[in-house]
Design a protein around this nucleic acid. Structure first.
Lengths: 227, 227
DNA sequence: TTCAACAAGATTGTTGACAATTTTGGCGAC
DNA sequence: GTCGCCAAAATTGTCAACAATCTTGTTGAA
């Protein structure tokens, strides 16, 4: 056989589709308040409407999408207050996780992070925003996954997803991407050297840019109030 | 018309069914590792299989249920390590929230908590475990909702749900319920008196009993390993 | 011109039937 | 008697048609 795709079952396809949609939102392909029509998206991504429906339900639960009964789904627009609140919790949890990562870390953890970051750096160099976003996700997953508490890592990821809708400004900006890359490399160094304080500080600083860029953009460009 | 039920639409019905299932798990009606057959549950609760499917998906996401493709859903059995990890994150977040509740709290917050607690106390006195569980949920929702950060409150609730499967021991025990009631009353007092340190300490202590009871029960009664 | 009622179209919500998969029980060979 | 294989049953996964709902555009009267 040639390109025989394994053909996932629905539960997995739903996740895959939801992830694709999430990427399109983060990359600014789909903008806040944009209408998400089930049939249209289903056809474009090559799945049945049924699957797309479930994917939208999932994104609603995650907080990236808003659904109104009988009226459809929209990319959620986060208010600056929401973004601030979410980031403040992220800061607490990511700091907590960074404090719990064993130092020095297990060799395979460090190797894994270096491999992922190598992919991330490549993507940044190529200007491949999509690949950079994926590598970035995997980096943070691996980093905080090393804290030893999978449930804490879960919460961190959940919160990160919530603000993905607010990241289209930074996720598709070469400048921010380069900064991210440098900070990741610094984190790896801090891990390798067992520099706990530096690691924690880096994690905290790493959050600020995308939060501030988004808030500035919203407060500058859009007026508050009704949808 | 007489008992004309509003007839919710599916999205709401899914939530309602998921909540019912959650209660049955917490109350020990449905035990860990018990098989959850879609058609059977759908018929018992008076919904279509389709709705039950979505409800199970939701509970899987929450972490109360485990699903294996083509093989069905089961009530998840939490390992003591999971319970410990989840509670350690809960402690951090609930402490954080308790520190942020404005003191003295808004009058309607206090009134709301007193009203809810009155219902809880009644339920405890009657030995009505289901009503007690519901009131307990609402109490914590209102308490941590008062912290001013809805996303923090969300995370707290999410984590609480994750361990609901581990609560059948305490949620249906008169002794534990009485203790909960007393601690709730003490929290209300602390709020009313603006006693921050006492409030925070009470929130922290409030978590221990159900965690320890579950861990003791699991480690004493069940052997680790096998599915 | 403005407004309200109405009809047509677009979109989401619901259902039952059908297909695919896994489990169970029985049968025969060794 | 035990093991492996095959058929039947139970259960989950997939789909397309149908119904309900909302939106949009049009018409007609005040």
């Amino acid at each position: 056989m040639s390109g025989a795709v394994p053909k996932l079952q629905t539960p997995d396809r739903v996740r895959a589709i939801a992830a694709t949609l999430e990427e399109e939102i983060v990359l600014g392909w789909l903008l806040p308040r944009e209408r998400l029509v089930e049939e249209e998206l289903a056809e474009r991504l090559g799945v049945k409407r049924h699957v797309m429906r479930e994917a939208l339900t999932e994104l609603e639960r995650v907080g990236l999408v808003e659904r109104i009964p009988n009226r459809g789904a929209f990319v959620k627009l986060l208010a600056p207050a929401d973004v601030r609140q979410i980031y403040s919790v992220r800061e607490v949890l990511e700091t907590l996780a960074a404090e719990q990562i064993p130092l020095p870390p297990a060799p395979d953890v460090l190797a894994g992070l270096r491999a992922i970051q190598s992919g991330h750096s490549d993507a940044v160099a190529r200007g491949d925003f999509r690949a950079a976003f994926r590598a970035n996700m995997r980096f943070h997953e691996a980093l905080f996954g090393a804290c030893g508490n999978p449930h804490l890592a879960d919460m961190i990821q959940t919160l990160a997803q919530k603000v993905h809708g607010a990241r289209s400004m930074t996720a598709a900006s070469a400048e921010h991407l380069a900064r991210s890359r440098d900070e990741h490399l610094a984190m790896i160094d801090a891990l390798a050297q067992g520099a706990r304080a530096a690691l924690v500080a880096l994690c905290r600083q790493h959050l600020a840019p995308s939060r501030d860029t988004y808030i500035a953009a919203i407060e500058g460009r859009l007026r508050p109030g009704g949808r």
